[in-house]
Amino acid sequence: MSQLASELRRPAVRARVKRPALGPSVTGGFVVLFLSVVVLIPLAMVVYRSTDSGWGGFWHQVHSPFAWSALELTIVMSLIAALVNLVMGTAIAWLLVRDKLPGQRVLDTIIDLPFALPTIVAGVTLILLFGASSPIGINLAYARSGVLIALLFVTLPFVVRTVQPVLLELDHDMEEAAASLGAGRLTIFRRIILPTIAPAVAAGTTLAFARALSEFGSTVLISGNLPGKTQVAAVYIYGKIQEDSVTGAAAVSTVLLAVSLVVLVLLNVIQRWVARRD
């Protein structure tokens, strides 16, 4: 009986296999075309136009005082924001997984608020709280610390969301075994918990850094965009676009793209490291 069934089935299978597989090539064609038209060709054009007046011109644009200080400010502030949220993000993830607080579910949900909130809205809310007429008396407007606060806000969820699942899966048995063998709390944290969460912490921090590098909307109000002082790279590029200086905008964009690309590659390496440990 079953032999009969398979005999009956076979021709249908053959017929299907013989038909040329049109589906994947149409899907593939659309995916590649869409990606090229929307992402790849435009990005390639930015890199291409950055050398409109040769490499000398490119370097001249990148090394102009305001462009250079904007890049410097962006990289330094992004690094600080990523490192602060490395510590705070890990602490928040710990609190969410290992602590029992009333309202923990709500806390868990609002952590993602910076992901969902439009950046310009973040900018308006931050200048309301930390601006010149701050109701809590903290004025960070037009200062580098204002830029930092904006970057801390937009990068907050990254480390939390990468570390939280790892902490959830962490086995208590190992910690208990270590404790039974006389390990102190600090030793347990340093020798068991830290090595387990380290790759996730690193991945989250890298994502946060990449996000901060590219930030525009949330910094545009609170920073005041003082060239050479509080102007971040994205705002500098925006200014160059408004001035119609294509080479200037494209050159700084290319540097920003290059830094982001390095960061993405780094993230990839970290994630493969994580995959291998799993």
């Binding site: 990005l43 590219s214 676009i241």
Partner: peptide, 19 residues
């Protein structure tokens, strides 16, 4: 390449399309 947009500044996206 699909992840590329995560690391690109919105302003650079705008510039790229304009160019």
């Amino acid at each position: 390449l699909i992840d590329l947009p995560i690391a690109v500044s919105p302003v650079v996206v705008g510039l790229a399309l304009t160019l």
